[in-house]
Amino acid sequence: MKVALVTGGSRGIGKAICLRLAQTRDYHILINYQSNKEKALETLKEVEDLGATGEILPFDVSNHIEVTEVLSRWVEANPEAVVEVVVNNAGITRDGLFMWMPYEDWNKVIQTSLNGFYSVTQFFIQKMLRNRYGRVINIVSVSGLKGTAGQTNYSAAKAAIVGATKSLAQEVAKRNITVNAVAPGFIETDMTESLDTKELVKIIPANRFGKAEEVAELVGFLASDKASYITGEVININGGIYS
């Protein structure tokens, strides 16, 4: 059984990625979520409606011990499974000006995005190396590339993953494992619902927010054999807002 794991897979971009990977029917989809089981089950049903198989897997990516314990139990229960694709999508925002930012807001964002990447990827990378195949795709952000006022914590976390993507790609490329990052701009999701769309659209050359499905198409390509010579890349998908 070939498996793809998507962290934060119950909603928004994560859900769209699960559905895009399900369309290929190549993979059993592991839908990670932290708290919203109802949404995770909805995503699972849509995955199954596409003719694929899947299951939900609750754990908090920011908790290294929990990640290791949950994934270890899953691997023990599924000895024939081979996780070929890992999509590190889980992330949170705790926006605010840096001068007033509580340590908790700084730490939680770093723990979720950056340490979550470490815990999940590190768990599977040796297995990928033994299998001589793997696809690691990290969802970063335009904020991690150009910086965004009021998001120093989020920008720092995503910029760190950009550096990690480029370094890890060089370490594992000889074993047919690619490591890439996808950097969305403003995408229509729960995370951007509270933003002033009319004002922000003025600074986007494409004159609109992107759709989660558009990000998922790019991830689907990077997860495929067609992208086997692309690694260490950070691909912007933002309507031209950062070039």
Rank of each mutant, 00 (worst) to 15 (best):
C18K: 05
C18W: 01
L19R: 10
L19S: 12
R20K: 15
R20F: 06
R20L: 08
L21C: 13
L21P: 04
A22V: 04
Q23P: 09
Q23D: 13
T24H: 00
T24G: 10
T24L: 09
T24A: 13
R25S: 08
R25C: 02
D26T: 08
D26Y: 04
D26S: 11
Y27Q: 01
Y27R: 03
Y27S: 02
H28T: 07
H28I: 08
H28K: 04
H28R: 13
H28F: 15
H28W: 11
H28V: 04
I29H: 10
I29T: 08
L30M: 14
L30F: 08
N32H: 10
N32G: 09
Y33M: 11
Y33P: 13
Y33R: 09
Q34C: 11
Q34N: 14
S35D: 09
S35Q: 10
S35W: 01
N36Q: 14
K37D: 00
K37M: 06
E38P: 07
K39V: 03
K39M: 04
K39C: 02
K39E: 11
K39D: 10
A40R: 03
E42A: 14
E42V: 11
E42Q: 15
T43K: 02
T43N: 06
T43M: 10
T43W: 05
T43L: 04
T43C: 11
L44V: 07
L44Q: 05
L44K: 08
L44G: 06
K45V: 15
K45Y: 14
K45D: 07
E46H: 12
E48W: 07
E48T: 14
D49Q: 15
L50N: 08
L50H: 05
L50A: 15
G51R: 07
G51P: 02
G51V: 01
G51N: 01
A52E: 02
A52G: 11
A52V: 07
T53F: 00
G54Q: 00
G54H: 08
G54P: 06
E55A: 14
E55P: 03
I56Q: 06
I56C: 10
L57K: 06
L57W: 00
P58I: 00
P58S: 07
P58F: 02
P58G: 06
P58Y: 05
F59S: 09
F59N: 04
D60V: 09
D60W: 02
D60I: 13
D60F: 12
V61Q: 04
V61K: 00
S62Q: 12
S62R: 07
N63D: 15
N63H: 12
H64T: 14
H64R: 13
I65H: 03
I65A: 08
I65L: 04
I65F: 03
I65M: 00
